[in-house]
Write a protein that binds this DNA or RNA. Structure first.
Lengths: 225, 225
DNA sequence: CTTGACATCGAACACTTGTTCGTGATATAC
DNA sequence: GTATATCACGAACAAGTGTTCGATGTCAAG
């Protein structure tokens, strides 16, 4: 079933072209389009090679159907395997909902509820260390008041949803009494929590741990310019 | 351009069918296949509704091409949006080469040459305002010396390759004589160039314009935590 | 009632596209 | 040389397929 004879140059080019065409146009090419691309003048020759390719398991064909081609996984190995790389890349893509703004003087809004399908931040998983999706969400930073935390107005912070934090984590937290949302480094110190700004020139805040609601841990900060 | 009238039942079924068909067969359906699926006896009616759908931005058509259909992102909202969303997302994905490190005391390394195919940063185009690919590259910030520019050790900066800059741009530049690479705001002031740190507490640097090699403009900063 | 926009139908047309067939070139095996 | 398999060409056919057009029905506005 698996000849090891190398594919002819033509056949390789055909596979490459088909792959490329599908990626570019969202549909397979016609026999004549293949012929033109691979410099074959006769449709029958294209058809002939297509049949060969099919016999050797590089593609499937739907008879008597226009553009009835489909590359198999095996074909991917011969070529750069793009159309399949699409799936892989997509699989590694995280679509993080951008659930709202984070403003110093207000609680994080719309934390659970429905958010606009539109507002997602797409990140490649290779940028985060294999975190599972779902738990992630993003917030846009609004206002100057957060800038002590290494984060600036307009930045997007990607957070992992969690109610607790380890020392040294940068967290988004709601400070009751103070009624403020902040992005700071988290340190539990006895009954107190030290919220440490990233800026070393700024002083930390000490709050009783009962007054701090951790909303999530900052995983990433993205800034456009 | 964006009617809010709901789609007719037929049109919704058409979108759903097209989506399903593409997912199942790897190619778009023909007009007649759509007609059969949605129970329309006349090809012209299918064509008619297809045109409507196109006008409202739910799909694209390649005229006079068999199976010349492609669902748009917008269509995804109406239906489950799976099959084509993959391609669309992929198309909007930018793979930015991570060409090296940027260190204060050294020129930007490996600027042109071959870099490891592996090291790419994948960004969604929706995070950058429609920049063309190609021109983009990424650098990892090494060392503390850049932190005056709103950028910190370990950050990845995404740059657009360009040799000139406008006032106010944040650029990566090599300062000759000083032999330093910096990330600073760029201001041309007569014959001099002012390199302004983002941190307002820090003083700007003035350099003769002949000594500044602009390498690129900072488009985005990404920080993992 | 008349008008006009909208949606549908059926049919005809022309181009697209997969399939088939006769022919020939090339190379390897007998 | 002859045979056989492989690969290629061009032409022609039939079915697939997008496009166009006249006719009809519906419905709300005038």
């Amino acid at each position: 079933m698996s000849d090891d004879k190398p594919l002819s140059d033509r056949q390789q080019r055909m596979l490459a072209f088909i792959n490329e065409y599908v990626a570019g146009n969202g549909r397979p090419p016609t026999i004549r389009e293949i012929g033109k691309a691979v410099d074959i003048s006769s449709t029958s020759v294209v058809n002939y090679n297509l049949t060969k390719l099919k016999e050797r398991g590089f593609l499937e064909r739907d008879a008597e159907v226009s553009r009835g081609l489909k590359l198999t996984r095996r074909a991917g190995k011969v070529i750069g395997s793009v159309s399949n790389a699409v799936d892989e890349t997509f699989a590694r893509l995280l679509r993080v909902p951008l659930v709202g703004n984070i403003v110093a003087g207000e609680p994080i809004e719309a934390f659970e509820g429905a958010y606009d399908e539109e507002d997602v931040v797409e990140l490649s998983a290779n940028m985060l260390s294999a975190s599972n999706n779902d738990e992630l969400f993003a917030l846009r930073v609004n206002g100057e008041s957060m800038i002590d935390a290494m984060v600036f107005d307009g930045d997007i912070v990607v957070l992992k949803k969690q109610e607790t934090a380890k020392n040294g984590d940068m967290v988004a937290a709601w400070v009751r009494g103070d009624d403020t949302t902040t992005l700071k480094y988290f340190y539990q110190e006895g009954q107190q929590i030290r919220l440490q700004p990233a800026n070393p020139h700024m002083d930390p805040i000490y709050v009783d741990s009962s007054l701090v609601d951790v909303k999530g841990k900052v995983m990433m900060v993205v800034r456009h310019t």
